[in-house]
Amino acid sequence: MPRWYPSRPSQGAALVAGFRSRSPNAVAAMVSFAMLTSPAAVDAHALRMTVADDQGTVRGQLFYSDETVAVKDRVDLLDAAGAELQHTFTDARGGFVFARVPTGQYRIVAEGEEGHRIEATLGVLAPQSAAGAAASVPGSDVAALRGEILALRQDLQRYEQRVRMGDVLGGVGLIFGVTGFVAWWRGRRVNDETVR
């Protein structure tokens, strides 16, 4: 994944050019432009979680919005009423597992450092019969397929939680639009007074 470094020469050059032109507007424009166009300016810090039920085993992963994994953070499994049933800590890859969870609705709450927190709800369907249990035997085709679907579901969840370029541009556009409106509104009043 490409990352943005402030020492990247092209952006440094743009900044220097901005300073040399001695125009503060150019400086501000260059800084915001360099930030907007920097290749990886689409991810950052909020805690994210993927979680899925694998026949009564709840598997998930905890990571930050820039997709660095959250290691050794506490994850709680709560029932629908909010009582804690189990807790665990994420491993080196941010993964966590709750085993032998009975059928029902659950809340999964994870807390990272620095006041990060994420919560998700999950319906668990534990195998009822011996046949269902047999399907989860490792090595069987069904188990393999189930594993792949589980991974796919987690990929989808991760993708859904990504910061999208459209959101970034939308936010910046909104800020500039509102600023322009306020400036026009204030300017309009001044002009009216001048006319009078």
């Binding site: 501000a28 907007l36 936010g171 910046v172």
Partner: peptide, 9 residues
């Protein structure tokens, strides 16, 4: 700028 800065990690 402030809005976008938090995306630069």
């Amino acid at each position: 700028m402030f809005f976008v800065a938090s995306l630069i990690h």
